[in-house]
Amino acid sequence: MKSITLKIDGYVIEAKEGQNLLQAALDAGIYIPHLCYHPDLTPAGNCKLCAVEIEGHDGIVQACETVVEDGMVVNTKTEAVKKLRNMALELLLASHPKDCTSCNKYLNCELQALMQYMGVAHSRLREIQKENTGIAKSDNLIKREMQRCIQCGRCVRACEELRGVGVLTFNKKNGETYIYTKDDKPLKETDCRFCGACVEVCPTGAIQDVEGVFSKNVPRNMALVPCKNNCPAHTDIPMYIRLVSQGRYSDAVSVIREKLTFPHSLGYICTHACESGCKRMHLNEPIAIREIKRFAVENDEAQAWRKKVVKNKPNGKKSGYYWRRPRRNDSSILFGKKGL
Rank of each mutant, 00 (worst) to 15 (best):
S102L: 10
E110N: 07
L125Y: 12
E79R: 07
E131P: 04
C109G: 00
G119S: 10
N75S: 10
Q151F: 13
E90S: 06
L93H: 02
R154M: 05
R85K: 09
C109L: 01
T78D: 00
L84E: 08
Q151L: 15
T133Q: 13
D99C: 06
M115W: 07
P97F: 00
V81M: 06
G134S: 14
Y117D: 14
G119K: 08
L89M: 06
S138M: 13
N104D: 11
T78G: 02
I150V: 11
I150S: 03
N108S: 10
S138A: 15
Q147D: 15
K83F: 01
C103P: 01
A113F: 10
K105V: 04
L89E: 03
C109Y: 01
S138D: 15
Q151V: 10
Y106E: 06
A94Y: 03
L91A: 09
K130P: 07
L91Y: 06
C100S: 01
G153C: 05
A80W: 03
E79C: 02
N108Y: 12
L125D: 02
C149L: 08
H122F: 09
M118D: 02
L89A: 02
A94D: 00
G134H: 15
L84D: 04
M146N: 14
K137I: 14
K83T: 09
L125Q: 04
C109F: 00
Q129F: 07
L125I: 10
M146E: 09
L89F: 05
A80I: 13
K98W: 05
